[in-house]
Amino acid sequence: MMTRILATQIAFNWRRNLSAISGTVILLACLFMVAVGPSLVAQNPYDVMQLNLLDSYLPPVWLEGGNPNYLLGTDGQGRDVLAAVIYGTRISALIGLSATLLSCVIGTFLGLMAGYFGGWIDALIMRVADIQLSFPSMLIALFLMSAFGTGIDKILISLTAVGWVVYARTVRGSTLGERQREYVQAARVAGLRDAAIIWRHILPNVMTPLIVVATVQVGTFILIEASLSFLGVGVPVTQPSLGLLIKNGFDVLFSGLWWTSLFPGLMIMAMVFGINLLGDFLRDELNPRLK
């Protein structure tokens, strides 16, 4: 509503909220890594020509036998773990963000339709949502992936199939509220068509709660994608995400070669932790009920 005042008010509260600041710092660090990281490491871990099998399973640099070229050690194919984590984070973050965006667009559209028009459109969309919610999202994603096969595009479809529901429900709820408001009635008296009323009046006023949902969902999607890849039904081996990196290291974890799994795992943890810290802060700030 009071965009300008709210913006400064949020900034004001952000400065006094330690977990919000930490979350932002962690996420900025991740962003930096994803954006600039590849140019900082010497090796492209997926260019087979750059790999040296003689360098396989080197420990991190601070352990005995470590090689300063490979700060966090190497894996079984002589791949630099740091470089792999950087490239993997890129893929994980890309999947998390694009799947969230896709779910948000599709879910918001369906939620607007359901909330604004009601009737059978509403009944249809919401019953599908209910059915979808009665299965664990991991199970649905797993099922779809085993049907489609691996691939980033297929992961996006699966995650979107799982993720749209929460937007549709949130948006439908807010839309039902907004539809009753006098400014929507005023728009009707002004002669606006339904599409224009939805686009110009309702959509901007139901967006705020979505920011919170979307923030948290990026974290959830990164985790689901990691799980799928860990189970071998996620990304293809040529484009390993963090989950696949963990799986690759997992096979040799009990031989004492822990670094190949641990560092991608820590990376996922840091990213999701940062997202959740920021998400909690946004939830407190943007939830009108807590005000």
Partner: peptide, 11 residues
């Protein structure tokens, strides 16, 4: 309309 706060789109 009745409510001068609800009848204008805040955005």
């Amino acid at each position: 309309f009745q409510d001068p706060f609800a009848s204008l789109d805040p955005r």
